[in-house]
Structure formats: structure tokens, C-alpha cells
Design a protein around this nucleic acid. Structure first.
Length: 165
DNA sequence: GCTGCGATTATC
DNA sequence: ATAATCGCAGCG
């Protein structure tokens, strides 16, 4: 099966977040089915690290072209894995919240062995990539508010969390 | 150079 | 409900 190409990651962030459901994430010889995602859209999203195009050492990754990995440490003990979307200069990403067998962004990274080493990696490389997976029907997708972003004011009510029922 | 906190998780 | 634990942004 072939890996997804650049054009997949350049679609609108919400489309990518939804379309990632059911795809296979391949890394270290492991293959994981993506079952839950969340979208983060920097230009308009107070919950996003790069809100309002804020550039810092950490958020710099999100300004890369779609199809790269954005990995960051949270609470000093867990890594979170994101897939950068949109064209270069638009800081947007999709957080992988769950794979089959591991629920929660921290657990996903632990299960797959993801660390800071993978930050800025290209998903078109051979080390790690995503390929076509199982088909997910529109009616099998549940849409909800994102989690743990209560500080984000109006953005906390955006329905940007997607999962397979 | 300090200070405070976070896109979480495990355990009470 | 709360502790664990640390990189780094913000401030000055």
C-alpha cells in the first residue's frame, strides 16, 4: 500500500483531521490505526500554540508545509504528536489523540515510541509515514468539542474533535 | 535569572 | 481532586 502524498496534507485542516480517521500510521515497523484527532488552526484558534501566527522556538514547526510532524512535550512528562497541515507559513496542525489500543495523546506517543527526535520530520520520508487504511463512513464519525483547553475562551466550543464511533 | 504553567496521565 | 515534572515564554 502506498503512502499518502503531499496534497493530502495541504487540504483544509478540518478535512485532514477528519480524513485521518481510519488511516494507518507506520513507524518503527509498527502500524497503527488512527481513531481520534483534533484540529488546531493557528490564525484563528486561541487553543493553538501558534495562535495569531505566534512564532516561538516551539511553534516554528507548525509554519512548515503540511505533511511534517510537530512533536512537543507537555507537563514535563508526555509527548504529543501532531501532523502539520496547510501551506508553508500557515501554522495549523492535527493532534493525534488516539490510535487503536491507545487512547490519549500521551499514550499514543508512548505506545509508538515517539519523542522530540521526530519533531520536524517529513511524513513523505521512509522513517515514518501514513498510508491508506480502513474506509470510514461519514455516519461513523462523531464530532465533538476539544478537550482540556478551557483557557481558550470562545475557541473551546469549536467542534474540532473527530473520532470513530 | 526567575516564575508560572500547560493540547496529560495515574492514582486517591 | 491532585501530584508528578520540565521546557520555555514572558518579564524586566
Amino acid at each position: 500500500m502506498s503512502k499518502l502524498d503531499r496534497s493530502f496534507y495541504l487540504m483544509p485542516t478540518l478535512e485532514v483531521a477528519k480524513n485521518l480517521l481510519g488511516k494507518f500510521l507506520v513507524i518503527n515497523g509498527k502500524k497503527a490505526v488512527i481513531i481520534e484527532t483534533e484540529a488546531y488552526i493557528g490564525p484563528i484558534d486561541k487553543a493553538c500554540h501558534a495562535y495569531g501566527y505566534k512564532r516561538t522556538k516551539r511553534t516554528e514547526t507548525m509554519f512548515m508545509p503540511g505533511g511534517h510532524l510537530y512533536i512537543y512535550m507537555i507537563y514535563g512528562m508526555h509527548y504529543c504528536m501532531n501532523i502539520v497541515t496547510e501551506k508553508e507559513g500557515e501554522p495549523c496542525a492535527v493532534l493525534i489523540r488516539g490510535i487503536e489500543g491507545a487512547s490519549g495523546p500521551g499514550r499514543v506517543c508512548k505506545a509508538l515510541g515517539i519523542t522530540k527526535e521526530y519533531d520536524r520530520k517529513d511524513l513523505l520520508s521512509d522513517d515514518i509515514y501514513i498510508e491508506e487504511g480502513i474506509a470510514v463512513k461519514e455516519e461513523e464519525i462523531s464530532i465533538a468539542k476539544r478537550i482540556n483547553i478551557d483557557y481558550a475562551e470562545e475557541a473551546k466550543d469549536f467542534l474540532w474533535r473527530f473520532s470513530i464511533k
